[in-house]
Design a protein around this nucleic acid. Structure first.
Lengths: 206, 206
DNA sequence: GTCTATACCGTGATAGAC
DNA sequence: GTCTATCACGGTATAGAC
């Protein structure tokens, strides 16, 4: 049983190469999907040979899982940051804005998750029903409390969260379509911000 | 140059097999993506041998393109049906409801398109900038007219259409996630209908 | 501890018998 | 018009040299 560098990166070169691989894999997986990506593409983008790449990760699937798990925390951070003690309207619209900003700054990550969801989440299924669900249940409770206290309008908190996900991720995941429709001169995100502000302000207004 | 059955299906068996192939391909492509799907899977689902399948379609890509093109009309029909002479609120919310119904009844088609968009629309790129854009420009003009006439609130018509796409397709494309969060007992679509009704009613209210 | 050469398999597509 | 057999390729993964 050899100690794979993955388990606990030690040398500088190991760290460096592992990170280069994950960065390259994010590029390729998000653009081509899991099956569409090839180790050759990832290896080339990482500046390594294909067999050398497989020295750092045991398999293509292992790279994919590592990416998904590593990204999940980043992805859910904005929702975690929703503060029960804050102003309801500011918290919800602020959350939406952070998600929109993430679509703009991290479209590859958005597409990686979208690909995984479309395939039925073969590598994340368990996490969805446990970690994600727990978090959403928690925050939905907060939002429900705000509704019942009359601080925002009465809305289903779960579908409110879904609508934030759908509306913000759409601009990353369907980027081609959005840009094809808007044309070259317009910036989708600059326009989406104010539009979504107004949408949620009206939805939440008492 | 042999006359391929695809060009103009003649015999009953040719029609039958071609349709079986497209139906099977929709199943497999929507679940696995283009690269993830194999001709073996499609052939088996269609009840044919792999070489026999390739007698009806020249290549895997040809099947995919045929599917996408054939579906586009169905997919855009609800937007085409948006009636400039109708009541603005009824037309827009009716459009949203038809799209939501399509997510419920045709989730495979929704995922097929989502997969294609995520990959950057390699097989549809041209259509987006022409046919789709023309249609959206047209309907956006109608909606803008309603806004300017004061019949609905002033909203960006393009992002209004995007928001309808995003919110309705989300329930089909992210089905696993939605069901994982809601749990087994709840029906996502039954709940989404009233939620989205209210959302758009508030958005459009003067 | 890192990379080169290579094995092996699944996939898309073809040739030719029936 | 359909099937069996097969090819060539690209893919993942391993063995072994440096």
């Amino acid at each position: 049983m050899t100690d794979r560098p993955r388990s606990r990166p030690k040398t500088r070169i190991q760290r460096r190469n592992s990170e280069a691989i994950l960065e390259a894999a994010l590029d390729v997986f998000s653009a081509q999907g899991f099956r569409g990506a090839t180790l050759d593409q990832i290896a080339q983008a990482a500046g390594l040979s294909k067999p050398n790449l497989l020295y750092y990760f045991p398999s293509k699937e292992a790279i994919h899982i590592e990416l998904l798990n590593g990204l999940l925390d980043v992805w859910l951070a904005p929702l975690r940051a929703l503060d029960p003690a804050g102003d309801p309207r500011d918290e919800i619209i602020g959350y939406m804005r952070r998600k929109l900003e993430m679509s703009r700054e991290m479209p590859r990550e958005s597409r990686l998750f979208a690909n995984e969801m479309l395939q039925g989440a073969p590598h994340m299924g368990a996490t969805l029903s446990t970690e994600l669900r727990t978090l959403v249940d928690d925050k939905a409770g907060v939002i429900r409390g705000w509704s019942e206290a009359g601080r925002i309008a009465a809305v289903d908190p779960y579908h409110l969260i879904f609508s934030i996900w759908a509306l913000t991720q759409h601009y990353a995941d369907f980027d081609v379509q959005v840009r094809a429709v808007l044309g070259a001169g317009r910036d989708p995100y600059d326009e989406a911000g104010p539009f979504l502000d107004r949408l949620f302000e009206r939805l939440l207004a008492r």
